[in-house]
Design a protein around this nucleic acid. Structure first.
Length: 154
DNA sequence: GCCAACGTTGGC
DNA sequence: GCCAACGTTGGC
């Protein structure tokens, strides 16, 4: 059963264009250091799940879609002291952080701003729209995913 | 740059 | 296990 997700990225850090230019348009989703977000990736994401790619910070928007192409494995960037997401409590023997690989499906011709999402019927229950929502990886309902895709392709 | 909301840490 | 202090996220 295909599941649906939303993943946040700061475009200055890794944008959908960076994904488009990656080898095979695929990237490991490294750097997540939040347990709830990790658990979604580690325990629930499966190959073939679909992802809304979200840019935060400036005019935050859903900018496209991607697909999970590799299920969770240890986030090795946590072991690198020179990496900004280094975590000394994670080790190869006992990894604390996990990631999946995602592959670009489609870059929206019409990116959908957060501001607009708040006005769309059927999205009232979205985790993303909750005040103070800070999760960087979150589940999305199938209907919500479809609504947003339809707008994004307009 | 501000700040509200939230997560994590650590002393007790 | 509680909770105060602190750090981070992310919209504005």
């Amino acid at each position: 059963m295909t599941k649906f997700w939303l993943m946040k990225s700061e475009p200055g850090c890794f944008s959908i264009d960076d994904l488009a230019e990656s080898e095979n348009q695929t990237t490991p989703w490294d750097g997540v250091r939040n347990y709830q977000a990790r658990n979604f990736m580690r325990d629930q994401m499966e190959i073939g799940d679909h992802v809304l790619f979200y840019h935060s910070v400036k005019n935050p928007s859903v900018v496209g879609t991607a697909e999970v192409v590799k299920e969770s494995y240890p986030d090795f960037t946590a072991w690198d002291p020179d990496d900004p997401h280094f975590d000394p409590k994670s080790s190869e023997e006992n990894p604390r952080w996990f990631m999946v690989d995602i592959k670009l499906l489609e870059k929206f011709s019409n990116p959908v701003p957060l501001k607009f999402l708040r006005t769309v019927g059927g999205l009232e229950g979205m985790e993303l729209l909750r005040k103070g929502s800070r999760l960087s990886v979150m589940p999305v309902a199938k209907d919500e995913f479809k609504i947003i895709c339809r707008i994004g392709k307009e």
